[in-house]
Design a protein around this nucleic acid. Structure first.
Length: 192
DNA sequence: GTTCCGATGTACT
DNA sequence: GTACATCGGAACG
């Protein structure tokens, strides 16, 4: 077998699960865009029945990708100026996604630092808007497959220690503990 | 360390 | 008009 084709199968298997399971399972994977990125250390789950989810209330022009194929990206603008990257998950219930909230930078750190105006390593990808700026993710990638260029997703060698807590920055469904993080990582957007 | 605030696209009342 | 899955900078302690 050549280098990467197997990972597409692994991505599909991971992302066919419920949003909660997929969000937990994504911790420790390496996410790259054009070879630049790092290890996913923080995620949040949003499913179709969740009042905090953009898909709650059905498809719109903005959230169309959430109702598209599993394993593709949902990229949207937040507060009019930042981008946020999600992975579309859960084939059994359309409209579910996992928000990628933070990475530990490993690949292309100089490129990310330049895009982030020389900010310290800890601040390059510690937040959903920050990691999109560092990786060059923008609206043009909405709906693109996460297992084809420019994206690549690489599984971890072993299951990392995962902690969970309540999600950040929402008002509806705020008590649901669907935020997941790599235990002890210094690159989380906030402490748990 | 903390709190406050402005930037502004998209969905919704 | 208001709310929002955010960020960075200013002001303050």
């Amino acid at each position: 077998m050549a280098a990467e084709p197997g990972s597409s199968v692994a991505v599909q298997r991971l992302m066919s699960q419920s949003a909660e399971m997929a969000a937990r399972g994504l911790i420790g994977w390496t996410l790259l865009v054009d070879g630049v990125g790092g290890v996913i250390v923080e995620t949040e789950a949003y499913d179709a029945g969740d009042p905090a989810s953009h898909s709650f209330g059905g498809p719109t022009k903005r959230n169309a990708a959430m109702f598209g194929p599993v394993g593709h990206a949902y990229v949207y603008r937040i507060y009019g100026l930042h981008w946020c990257l999600n992975a579309v998950v859960d084939a059994a219930s359309a409209g579910s996604a996992v928000l990628i909230r933070a990475l530990a930078p490993t690949q292309g750190i100089e490129i990310m630092s330049a895009r982030r105006r020389g900010l310290p390593l800890r601040d390059l990808c510690a937040g959903p808007g920050r990691l999109c700026e560092a990786l060059g993710v923008a609206g043009a990638l909405d709906g693109a497959s996460l297992s084809e260029p420019p994206f690549s997703l690489i599984p971890p060698a072993s299951d990392p220690p995962v902690i969970c807590g309540v999600r950040i920055g929402i008002t509806k469904g705020a008590e649901t503990p669907w935020r997941f993080g790599l235990s002890g990582s210094p690159f989380l957007s906030r402490k748990f």
